[in-house]
Every structure is written in C-alpha cells, then in structure tokens.
Design a protein around this nucleic acid. Structure first.
Lengths: 254, 254
DNA sequence: CGACTATGATTGTCGGACAATCCGACCTAA
DNA sequence: TTAGGTCGGATTGTCCGACAATCATAGTCG
C-alpha cells in the first residue's frame, strides 16, 4: 500500500532464457497454445526467438519442472496440464524448508478435512460410497500391517476428496496431504487399537455420508484426526517439531 | 492399490541435466545445504558432476523457477527459501489451465476463510487488531475507487491470515487467493452499496476478534463472501464459467 | 581511512559438433 | 494385404570452445 512515487523504475536485466520461458508461458496462458499442443522443435524456437539453442533449452527447462511443458513420447515437447502432484511436491518441500511444525500441519489438515467432508456429505453418490466401503473392507483385512493401513487410509481420504468435487480445495490440500499421510504409518504403528479405531472412524464417516448427516460427519472427522494426533504423540514424537522428510517418510515422489 | 504384477519395470532414461537437479535438490532437502548457503559456481559443479557446463546450467534452471535456488546479489547461485507466491503463481495458473470454475473457487474460499477466521479469533493480538482497524479506515476513505477497495480488501484478508499463525493453511490458500482477490474489483464495482457492505463486514469481523466470538466471526465471513458472490453475479458474470486470467485480472505476477 | 582501479572470476550467450534415438517412408516376404 | 525389416532425415541430449559483460576482491592512491 505504501508506494512512494519514484522518478525511475528499477532496472532489472532479464536474461534471455527467462524471456524465452515467459514468452512460451504467455502463449499457453492466453489459450493460443492448449494442453497437448506441440511446442515447436528447438530449431524452430531458435529461429522464432533469434537466440541460441542453448538459450532456448534453458528457457524450456524453466517450464519443464512445473509441468507447464512435458516431453511426450519420444522426447518432443508439448504443452502439459500441470498435475497437482507436481506442484504439490514442490509445495510440500517448501513447507519442509520453512520448518513448519506438525502442529500447524495437523491444524490445517483438520480445517481442510472438515471442509472436504461438508462437501462430500452433500454430493456423495452411491458409487462413491461403495468404493469407500470397499476400501474400508480392504483396510480391515490388512489391519496387522501398519504400512498397508496407512496406504489404504490415504486412498480413503483421496476418495473422499474426489467426492467433494471441488478441484480448488483438492489442490489446496495436496501439499499438506503429502506430508501428513505418510506419518499415519507411524501414528498407527504403536497400538493395534489404532488401526481398529481408524477403521471404525472410516465406517462412521461413510455412514454419515449415507444419512447426509453433516454433524456426524464432522464429529467423526474430528475424532479421526484426534486419534492421529494421539498416535503421533504416543510414538514419542513432538507436535511442535518441524516437519522433516525423515519423519514424513517419502514426500519425495518427484 | 491395484498394482498388477508385471514382469519388467518400465525403463525411463533420465537425462543428465535432470540428475544434476535431483542431486542438488537432495542436498538441500537433506539439510546439508541450508537456505542462504551458496551453491558452488558452475565450474565447481562441472567438476563435481563430471558433466558439461551446459548440462549443469540446464539442471540449475529446473530448480530456479520454483525458488529452490536463487540468484543472490551479483548472479551467484544460492539455496533459496521458496516463497509462497512463487509456488502459488504456478499453482493458480494450473487451476486456470484445469478450467476450474468460479463456483469451485468460491466454495473453496468459503471453507478456507472459515478455517482462517477460527484460528484468528483464538490468536489475534491487540497489535494485529489495530492493524486491521487501520486497514478498514483506509478502505473507508477510498470507497469510491473500486480498485483501491479491492487492494485494501486483499490486504485485510492477508492480515487476517497472518493472524491465524498457521503457515500450512496460509500456503494452501495462496493459489485461490491469487485468483479470487482480483475479482473483488469487479464484484464491488457494480454498486456503491457493495463497498459499504464490505467495510461493514470487515468491521464486524474485527469486532468478533475482539470479543473472541467465533460464531459471529463465522457468520460475517459467510455474509462477506455471499456479498462477493452477489456482486459477481450482478456484474453479469457466471459462477460456472471457468476461471480465466482476463476476469481474474493479474494473477500473473511471476 | 576512504575512494578508486586493475585483475581475475563468473555468468550469460553464442557457434558448432556428434552420438543416440525417434519418426516416417519405403521395401520385402508371407 | 499386411507384418515386419531397413534406411534416411529430423530431433534431442551432450559436449567443446569461445567471448563480452559484469561482479568481487585486493591492491593502490589520495
């Protein structure tokens, strides 16, 4: 808000490779290039931009990692639809570097899960609820294997998110998901009781979806996440410790 | 979960420049390189990795855009703390490319704002409430300028987010913020009444913070966002239209 | 002690080169 | 006709060498 009127704008020399990246990005965002469309070959870009191939290549690399451009079959470059994971991977790593604590992670997950479940209660279809049931059955069958339980738990919550049918919320959750879900493994490991309570919570959540009972859904969401927290602490971990990739296992699926 | 046992794993040749990027990233995430530390010069990296300088440079570009490495003063490379905006810019563009609708955006913002306000009610300090008051006064003084009102509104909500003191939630909100805040301009433009209601809502929100009244805070958050929605529709825009950068103005501050 | 300068280091950009791979057209045999 | 093989051109990944512009640093001068 405090913008002093200055005589001269700051001069910031922009390297050519960056301008190449920005030019391509503009084309994509303006809609002139659509996902799937091939970007020209490097030789074509060299001609169009009038810069060296090395420069073009550096520019392309800037866009490549975020998924804005992808190498399709063979290695030709095409406009890509950046998928959530790619960005979420970066984002979750940023959270780690910022040393956010597990408490912040837990709080945010609580809030986001409640938002998700609200939408899911309104929108769950029979098919989706059947899929959730199937997931719970599978979880129950694997209750003595913490890693499997954690994997099924992740899948359960991803199904729940899809049920909410809101991609903005889905994407907002992804980074924290990548950090917190792997720790379920640890949180459940301590007691066999943990896995049992997890399955029960999932069952009650689906029942709440069936009866469209938002209050019940919220209640069990809270319980479920409180259980996670208790398990986490029982495992001897500190909620106020910064999230690290060791504890949060593999959030590194680049 | 449905993993068919296949005879052979997929063969995915990894280019050298990508391996360079991954190697550097590993060093950073493991903590051996910390934010601010200088990465070696290109010549050093060439020696260490045993590849050509062009290859090293391409690898660096992969990390540069997400803010994992930054050029400090001069142009030497150092480990960077990726700031939210950088990632959020990418993320918001991804949302645009995925053609999410304003309805999804509005829904998600509603859920996230409620989560934020809950935390803010618990944690707001006197200083923070004074800052919010000052912002509202400024808004009131500029009520006939929709652009200024929109800018102050954005600032207000950012202050509110800081008050929540949860960086995970803060970062989760950033991408949708970048898309929805610019539209406030449009939503307020229609009627002078719009700006007045906006200021009132802000006042009531701060009052709710002062009295630690969570219900009141939630109520006014809902009203505030419903107002935005009404203004949006009154401006002749369709909630179910995909978010585009034209309507959402400048979400393009790379 | 501070301002200035020369020197070396570093980055950004360029040009050219070559191997590996991929695409597509063409060809051959059943 | 079609499945499979061959071949040439196009494209990418990587390398090499080079040079101007800029920055850091130390050394010099006032």
């Amino acid at each position: 808000m405090s913008e002093v009127a200055e005589k001269f704008a700051r001069i910031t020399p922009v390297p050519a490779y960056q301008m190449v990246a920005e030019a391509i990005e503009r084309e994509i965002l303006s809609g002139r290039l659509r996902p799937g469309d091939p970007i020209g070959t490097e030789a074509q870009l060299v001609r169009q931009f009038g810069v060296n191939r090395s420069t073009v290549r550096e520019g392309i690399r800037l866009l490549e990692q975020s998924g804005m451009v992808q190498r399709d079959s063979s290695r030709r470059l095409a406009v890509g639809l950046p998928h959530y994971d790619q960005l979420a991977t970066r984002a979750s790593r940023a959270l780690v570097l910022h040393q956010v604590t597990f408490r912040e992670l837990w709080e945010a997950t609580m809030a986001l899960s409640l938002a998700t479940i609200d939408l899911a209660v309104d929108r769950a279809t029979d098919d989706e609820m059947r899929a959730l049931d199937a997931n719970i059955d599978a979880t129950e069958a694997a209750m003595d294997d913490p890693a499997a339980v954690a994997a099924y738990d992740t899948e359960f919550h991803l199904l729940l998110e899809k049920t909410g049918r809101n991609r903005v919320l889905e994407m907002a959750r992804e980074p924290s998901n990548m950090l917190i879900y792997p720790t379920t493994h640890v949180a459940v490991q301590g007691t066999v009781e943990g896995a049992r309570r997890l399955v029960e919570a999932h069952r009650m959540l689906v029942q709440a979806l069936r009866t469209r009972d938002k209050e019940m859904a919220r209640l069990w969401t809270r319980r479920h996440l409180n259980d996670w927290r208790k398990g986490f602490e029982k495992a001897g971990l500190d909620l106020d410790q910064p999230v690290d990739l060791v504890t949060a296992s593999q959030a590194t699926t680049s």
